[in-house]
Simulated assay, not measured.
Amino acid sequence: MHSVKFPRIAVEALAWAILWVVVLAILGGGLESPFRFLRRLGPLLVGIVAVVIVNATVLLPRLYFANRRGWYVVAGTAVVVAVALILQYGFVPDRAFPIQFGRGARPRGLGTATLRYLLPLATAFMGSALIEVMRYASYRERQAVQARGEQLATELKFLKSQVNPHFLFNSLNNIYTLTLLQDEKASESLLRLAGMLRYMLYDSETERVALGREIEYIRNYIVLRRLKDSRAMDIQVDLDESRPLLPIAPLLLIPFVENAFKHSRVEDLADGYVRISLVTSAAGIVFRVENSVPVTPSPADQTGGIGLENVRKRLTLLYPDRHRLEVDHGDHHFIVTLQLELV
């Protein structure tokens, strides 16, 4: 529950009392006899302070914020009326309402003076209630934003963890084979793999990275995938690196590339292919990945699609109303086109 700080409530109650001192002084000529006026006004000011404090520390937390708002209205009305009656008949029975300085017996019933007490008391009560309700709504909104932020952070971390890591182990096996053959590509491939691991473990923990780092990761991935087959596979890559400093969420584009290699059967030199292109502008990118679709689906094709679904969720969370994702799934091709506003 929203905590109530008594010093703040006391200051607020004092502010309402001062407000009514000014109002009644103007209406009742209190500026002509200020000391006498304040002495006569003292009980009313005590009543205003009491009403505000009881409302903020008792009624609002225990009734209104506890969703017992009908009881809150009844209890609030009772408090205001009770304080008005006490002021009218309990403190100074020989005086009328403070701005009426004449003496005289008070009426025995609920008279005009009692109704006049209700105006400042009710105003202070409802005004303090409005302030506290707005403060409470702001508090709940901050709580919701914080909870949403924590939820987004957790979900994004989970989604990024779903980036398929199995190719790393395949790359290690391929590099090991190169070392046995004493191939000069072994050391270069190992450096590429180390760079990819560093990007996945450290750079991806940040909210945004430079587009150039994401492109470098994609290029390293493609180079390592080529190690799987020494033949000239049909892989075409055209990545625009003219704006490497554009900010982008890390590991956002690689799932499209992973899916393309996973489902294209690019090792089929006759029919398999992968096409990857990236075009940048001052405000964003257009990323397009196309791959062949084998006539006979493989087991990987039957279990695929998780990476693409993860990217959809990440795009919705990170770039709401700032992206457009189109998927064209034909009989012999699969095309994904992502238009993304980055700045």
Rank of each mutant, 00 (worst) to 15 (best):
M1A: 15
S3D: 09
S3K: 13
V4A: 04
P7M: 02
P7T: 02
P7K: 02
R8D: 01
A10R: 00
L14I: 08
A15F: 10
A15N: 00
W20C: 02
V21Q: 04
A25P: 03
G29K: 11
G30Q: 07
R36P: 05
R39L: 15
R40W: 08
R40S: 10
V46S: 12
N55L: 05
A56F: 01
T57L: 10
L59W: 02
P61I: 08
P61W: 07
R62M: 08
Y64T: 03
F65P: 00
N67S: 14
R69T: 12
G70D: 07
G70F: 11
Y72L: 03
Y72H: 13
V73M: 05
V73W: 09
A75Q: 02
G76I: 00
T77S: 15
A82T: 13
I86D: 07
I86T: 12
L87C: 04
Q88D: 09
G90N: 06
G90P: 05
V92N: 12
A96M: 11
F97D: 00
F97P: 00
G104M: 09
A105W: 14
G109C: 05
T112I: 11
T112E: 12
R116E: 03
Y117H: 09
Y117L: 04
P120V: 02
A124E: 01
S128L: 05
A129K: 02
V133G: 05
V133A: 07
S138R: 14
R142G: 10
Q143F: 14
A144S: 12
Q146G: 06
R148C: 02
E150I: 09
E155W: 00
F158M: 11
Q162I: 06
H166Y: 09
H166N: 14
F167T: 04
N170V: 08
S171I: 02
L180D: 10
E184L: 06
A186Q: 01
S187Q: 13
R192F: 05
R192A: 06
A194W: 08
L197W: 08
Y199N: 08
E207S: 10
V209R: 00
E214D: 14
I215H: 08
I218G: 03
N220C: 13
Y221A: 04
Y221I: 08
Y221P: 03
R226N: 09
S230D: 15
S230R: 15
R231G: 11
A232W: 10
M233W: 11
Q236R: 15
L239V: 08
E241F: 11
E241H: 12
E241R: 13
P244F: 07
P244W: 06
L245S: 14
L246V: 12
A249D: 06
A249T: 13
P255K: 03
P255S: 10
V257E: 01
E258K: 03
S264F: 05
V266N: 00
D268S: 10
A270Y: 06
R275D: 12
L278A: 04
L278S: 03
A283E: 15
F287M: 04
R288F: 07
N291C: 09
V293D: 07
T296K: 15
T296N: 14
S298D: 15
S298Y: 12
P299Q: 13
N310C: 12
V311F: 01
R314N: 03
R314K: 14
L318E: 09
D321F: 02
R322I: 04
H323S: 09
R324T: 15
H329Y: 10
H329M: 12
G330H: 06
H332I: 06
F334K: 03
T337G: 05
Q339P: 04
L340M: 10
L340C: 05
L342I: 09
L342G: 04
